[in-house]
Design a protein around this nucleic acid. Structure first.
Lengths: 335, 335
DNA sequence: CTGCCATATGTATCCGGTTACATCAAGAAA
DNA sequence: TTTCTTGATGTAACCGGATACATATGGCAG
């Protein structure tokens, strides 16, 4: 491997000058600069990032902790972070947490150990208290799609309450009154908030959510199937169903298919997220879209600003609204 | 940040000893070791990986280059790599190439600059020649899902010829004789090989592939739709269709739906990959499965062995077979 | 009691860069 | 011409660890 020392020798200058040519070209004399650049080119020199990071105490890199890679949900957010950072000359490195609190902790620290200048953490499993402590200690870390009251300015997230409300308003606008819902695990604040907003939305139309029409799912297809079966078994009639994510909606649709219940003719179904599955289902799923890329991008930018001490959150948008993507699973039943 | 120096002072030993406690505990006296460990614990010391990597000239990390993150296809492979490496105490870091040759080059080098001990590269776009040169220069890099004759032992991939043949054999076993196919872009060897195997499979049953029944797609849904429309427009009859990936199959199914052609009653459709979309389509897609996780894992292990100079490719499996996953889009038409 | 060897620990250098500070040359001002 | 300033470059320390080699310590055989 060719080092800065070899370049400096070949060019007849000191390593400091070579370093300057790379990081501060304008302070180097034109003649010297060109000579050095020529040598760099000829030798195919590439600065060793590890050495640079150590010496400069900065890695120009933001780390990202996500649950896992085999899911476009995280993939989109990751892409958002990456894209935004690329624009400011920063790199992104991601680590997965396997969706456990221990994994989240480890991935987070591991990224810090690599001297990431900041880290964007998607932490579903760590408790609020611990997160608060960690955020206090790591002033350049930000939370992705999670809201922590004590550190609101360090969170970038979808307004799940708004999303839930939007779902209710939309279904009501289509003439539905008897509406069931399959929530995510209630230990997740996303589920709590979506349900809260949903309840609010119904209330606006003077509808009270019937406890029998609420089933808790697991954010996966299987849970959606089971929850839907449960809802149907209670025999309470409903004309529309709101699911806390698209996968559970897919499960619910599967249950309908099996029981020969036509969607949307007999039951309208509304999903949440708008990840690929939504557009592949038949009929295509109407859903509440999360702007995942944008959310990721904002989180990346926020971490970057914190890391570089930019003029504080200069009006950076950190709370995002969900929006309805109309496809084919919700019909208007207005008489 | 607490450094090894502070730990050594607190423990009344030299930094060398602290370093040993961490990397070679057995050579340190029991009493000293415990004292040091106690201090480490108390101070919350975490070794700076950047410094360690620089000093040891190894990062215990394997880099991975993939097209993009927002696709489970790469996600699965990445998970495979990560999982396999975790077992041997190695870390994984991924970088995306945006599916351009320049991006692949840059990501690859960037990973090398970070002193990754090895790198697993999914390079669709770089030319064979350049890949050969790069592989020669980087003895610990391996190719993921691409086959390079000159460096066969550095490639971990699906046997696409076998996959194509399997597809033909399967459809034929279901009584189909008139079979159409939508290929990937023919500049990709995957498409070439799948088509080659497919042709072979047909030949085994004395069927020659009618050129009118071959349409080139783009590996995306839109291309599948268009290609299917094209195939139907030529008016040549066929009872089954083999698509080079699931997304194009989804597109083809969409075209059928629009033209009121029933799948699988009128046309059987077989996909390739078995990524999520397959199981969400209606009817569920019968497809040729790639063992993506296993492929990723093998690539990770191979890179790791090369990096650590393990007893060479000790019988590591590097060529994988595809298999049929029967769902609902292919029916038996044997009279 | 010596001498030797194995084990435990310290010393000093190195990894490949960055950067504060010193130095030097040349042009401008006096 | 002298002095100051300014811009270009070099010197050397440092980032936080790893590790080859030197040294010290203790046990055991002779």
């Amino acid at each position: 491997m060719v080092t800065i020392l070899q370049v400096s020798r070949q060019a007849g200058v000191s390593t400091a000058t070579v370093s300057r040519v790379i990081n501060n070209p304008e302070v180097v004399g034109v003649r010297t600069r060109e000579r050095v650049l020529e040598v760099i080119e000829r030798l195919g020199y590439r600065p060793n990032l590890v050495a640079r990071d150590l010496a400069s105490r900065s890695s120009r890199t933001i780390g990202v902790v996500i649950n896992n890679f085999a899911s476009v949900y995280y993939g989109f957010m990751l892409e958002g972070v990456e894209m935004a950072l690329r624009n400011v000359g920063y790199k992104t490195i991601a680590e997965s947490s396997q969706a456990t609190s221990e994994g989240e902790r480890q991935a987070w620290f591991s990224l810090l150990d690599r001297q990431c200048d900041g880290v964007v953490v998607h932490a579903d499993n760590l408790e609020d208290d611990e997160l608060a402590v960690l955020l206090d200690r790591q002033p350049t870390s930000v939370l992705l799609n999670r809201y922590l009251k004590s550190h609101a300015d360090r969170c970038v997230y979808l307004d799940n309450v708004q999303g839930g409300r939007l779902a209710a308003e939309y279904l009501i606008s289509k003439g539905h009154h008897q509406i069931a819902t399959i929530t995510g695990p209630m230990k997740f604040y996303q589920a709590k908030d979506r349900l809260k907003g949903f309840t609010q939305g119904l209330a606006q139309a003077s509808i009270t959510l019937d406890a029998d029409l609420v089933a808790e799912g697991d954010f996966h297809e299987a849970g959606g199937e089971a929850a839907m079966a449960h809802l149907l078994d209670t025999q309470k009639p409903f004309t529309a169903l709101f699911c806390h994510n698209d996968e559970m909606a897919a499960g619910a649709m599967e249950t309908c298919r099996r029981r020969c219940i036509r969607v949307p003719e007999e039951i309208s179904i509304l999903g949440f997220d708008d990840v690929n599955v939504a557009s592949h289902l038949t009929p295509k799923l109407t859903t509440v879209r999360q702007p995942l890329r944008e959310i990721g991008a904002a989180a990346g930018i926020l971490a970057h600003s914190l890391a570089t001490g930019q003029v504080a959150n200069s009006g950076l948008k950190t709370v995002f609204d969900a929006e309805i993507v109309e496809r084919a699973t919700v019909v208007d039943v207005t008489p």
